[in-house]
Amino acid sequence: MTTLSHSPRHGPTRAVLRLHRVPLWVWTVLVIAGAGGLTWLYALGQEAASYGACGGTGMPECATEMRYWGSEHQSAKLLAWLPCGIAACAGAVLTGRELEHGTATLAWTQSVSPARWLAAKLAVPVVALLGGTTALTLMFRWVWGAGPDGGVNRWNSEYFHAAGSVGPAYVLLGLALGAPAALLTRRTLPAMGLALAGIGLAYHLGDRFRSSLWPASEVRGPWDSALNHVDQLEFGMIMESGERVSGLDCSDQAAPGDLGTCLSDHGAVDFYARIHPTSHYWPIQLVETGIALALAAAAVAAAFWVLRRRLP
């Protein structure tokens, strides 16, 4: 007679799924609710687009369009921030709670090595969080592309995170930061604080240095509406000597006939602007995604290093 048994290879994964099934169900519900909300937003955008351009304040079509823009912006902010915060907390809680209560040491004595224990703690939320965030990101792009153009610049920080590969990458970074924070503090709440501070700092630095991730282009001539959807880095005038002086404009002399006079008054020959055009959008997305993933890998490596150093 032979005895059937579960493979010990999957034991830690099953344990994580069983122990943390409630947070996983909550995340599933949040993803489903987000997908439902974005589907509703798509329908609202289609309704607003069917009216055509908003013709005046107070008209029904204007109310629909304004409601769509406001809901779209709120969706972008939620998708940009909420999964990152959840990931940072998950990375800290999944690891920190067992260290705080001593159950991790018990697991290590039950034929589960510390490395396998930590790998299972990270692998399960990676699948759940990455899958859910990627699905919502794709849906947001679907909604944004189908609705009326509200004049929102695609380089807006929340939209940049919500509509591209950067968003899921920051989710992985938040999760990865939670693990070393928990292993260093061995307490859940301090680890959550450190992980949230870390992902917040990464988010801020990404916004600050994003424009430096790809060489900018220069365009000349007066600013026009065709440039409203670019990432403007610098605007000014080109002097007769060829020197570029930023910040000079002719906003009080907007009539075309006055621009030449304005240039002459400043001793300039033309306007210039340093920008990231639409063609730079995905290269910058991919570069920042690569940086976030590299930082996440470094955080995971740091977690395993700290685990080895702190083994009882």
Results as ranks from 00 to 15, higher is better:
Val287Lys: 01
Thr64His: 09
Arg210Ile: 12
Ala63Trp: 01
Gln110Phe: 10
Leu189Pro: 08
His229Thr: 14
Gln74Tyr: 13
Tyr51Arg: 12
Gln253Ser: 14
His276Pro: 00
Ser50Asp: 13
Tyr170Trp: 14
Arg310Gln: 04
Leu175Pro: 11
Arg274His: 08
Ala80Phe: 02
Tyr42Glu: 07
Glu158Met: 01
Ser251Asp: 07
Asn156Ile: 14
Val127Trp: 08
His229Tyr: 15
Leu196Arg: 06
Arg97Trp: 13
Ser165Val: 07
His10Asp: 04
Pro23Trp: 00
Leu175Trp: 06
Leu311Val: 12
Thr105Ala: 14
His280Asn: 10
Arg186Leu: 13
Leu233Asp: 09
Ile32Thr: 11
Pro8Cys: 11
Ala273Lys: 08
Arg210Ser: 12
Ala202Trp: 01
His101Lys: 09
Cys84Val: 12
Val152Cys: 03
Glu61Ser: 10
Thr39Gly: 09
Trp282Leu: 07
Ala35Met: 05
Met1Asn: 05
Arg9Ser: 06
Lys121Gly: 12
Asp149Ile: 05
Ala115Gln: 15
Glu218Gly: 04
Val300Asn: 01
Asp207Thr: 08
Ala268Phe: 02
Ala90Phe: 03
Gly34Trp: 00
Ile32His: 07
Gly36His: 00
Val245Ile: 07
Ala296Asn: 04
Gly257Pro: 04
Leu79Lys: 07
Ala128Pro: 09
Val306Asp: 04
Arg310Pro: 00
Trp81Pro: 06
Leu184Gln: 14
Gly174Val: 13
Trp144Arg: 14
Ala63Ser: 04
Leu184Pro: 12
Gly174Asp: 12
Ser241His: 14
Met237Phe: 13
Leu194Gly: 12
Pro23Gln: 03
Ser241Leu: 15
Asp258Tyr: 09
Trp25Met: 10
Ala146Asp: 05
Thr64Leu: 09
Ala216Arg: 06
Ala299Lys: 00
Gly206Glu: 09
Val31Tyr: 03
Ala197Trp: 02
Leu293Met: 14
Ser211Tyr: 14
His266Leu: 11
Pro8Glu: 11
Ser7Pro: 02
His266Thr: 05
Val245Asn: 01
Ala179Leu: 07
Tyr281Gln: 05
Leu122Phe: 07
Thr188Cys: 10
Trp214Gln: 11
Ala298Cys: 10
Ala182Glu: 06
Arg310Trp: 01
Ile291Ser: 00
Val126His: 02
Phe271Gly: 09
Ala43His: 07
His229Gly: 15
Leu177Gln: 07
